[in-house]
């Protein structure tokens, strides 16, 4: 640039700068108010939940000594990893239970995704004119996702007995609610031009959804479903705590009966499984997002 940028004369510049500063001031005070509310909120929640740093410091040692006990061979001797055969004595039945856990998550996600897709489309204001139907779809999804899956599992265990079935149902219902919400946001943000194109060509509502909506949301829908699968694998691992099948049953038993080495072994297996599944779904999700 061969010549400096010209500045307005001060007489002309000052009123413009002042006008800008005036309209920025309201934004500044609003930002300050939000920050103050955040600080006040965190102080109040700390007080309510009795967060006590002194207590935390005093008992943190107990946390580490539990891990110390977890990793010390119960028959005397050294650490658990010096004798992996002894440590993972129950590997075969545990792997079967782990497989159960992953399958529970898979089935729960599959049913949840199908139902969630339907609820998302039925609840979308840009596709459904019928207000009661939309309201019903939205409230149903809301109910399904606000009740924690562990609570659903507890109820279903009482109704259907112990085993993986109540676990699958609990995961499916919770996934249906969560995916219904996430996908409805995808549906409400679609480009309406293809929808008009299909309607103008005489397509029925279902055909319009298939040919104008589904192609647009498919990558996002699959990506959200995979993310939900990841979450469900973690969720399924604790459903066994209430008797709803999977590895959680072994884990809660080992915790309650103070089988320290078993707790350690089961935790390692669960963490490894979750890491593997997270990595695989993460790879798939990245591919899908690139395709979008």
């Amino acid at each position: 640039m061969s010549q400096a940028l010209p500045l307005l004369p001060a007489a002309q510049l000052a009123p413009l700068l002042a006008a800008y500063a005036r309209s920025r001031r309201a934004v500044f005070w609003r930002g300050l108010l939000v920050a103050a509310c955040l600080v006040a909120g965190s102080l109040a929640s700390g007080w309510m939940a009795e967060v006590d740093l002194g207590k935390f410091g005093k008992h943190i040692g107990g946390f580490f000594s539990y891990f110390d006990r977890l990793t010390r061979l119960e028959g005397g001797g050294g650490r658990v990893w010096t004798d992996p055969g002894e440590w993972f004595w129950g590997l075969r039945p545990w792997l079967v239970q782990l497989g159960d856990t992953v399958l529970m998550a898979y089935a729960g996600t599959l049913f949840g995704a199908l139902g969630g897709f339907c609820l998302a489309v039925l609840g979308a204001a840009n596709l459904v004119q019928n207000q009661p139907l939309r309201w019903g779809a939205k409230r149903l999804a809301e109910f399904c996702r606000t009740v924690p899956d562990l609570v659903f599992a507890l109820l279903f265990v009482i109704a259907f007995g112990l085993g993986p079935l109540p676990g699958v149902m609990a995961l499916a219902i919770h996934s249906l609610g969560a995916l219904g919400k996430q996908n409805s946001e995808l549906v409400e943000n679609i480009d309406m031009k293809p929808v008009e194109g299909a309607i103008a060509a005489g397509a029925s509502w279902v055909a319009m959804v298939r040919f104008a909506v589904l192609p647009q949301i498919l990558p996002g829908f699959l990506s959200y479903s995979l993310l939900r699968f990841e979450i469900n694998v973690r969720g399924a691992a604790v459903l066994g705590f209430v008797g709803a099948g999977g590895i959680g049953q072994d884990l809660i038993e080992a915790v309650r009966k103070f089988y320290y080495n078993d707790v350690a072994a089961l935790l390692v297996l669960i963490i490894l499984t979750v890491v593997v599944i997270d990595t695989l779904t993460g790879l798939l999700r990245r591919r899908l997002l690139e395709a979008r």
Binding site: L5, P6, L7, L8, Q12, L13, L16, L17, Y20
Partner: peptide
């Protein structure tokens, strides 16, 4: 001032 002058 530079930015506002450019806008104006």
């Amino acid at each position: 001032a530079i930015a506002l002058s450019a806008l104006e």
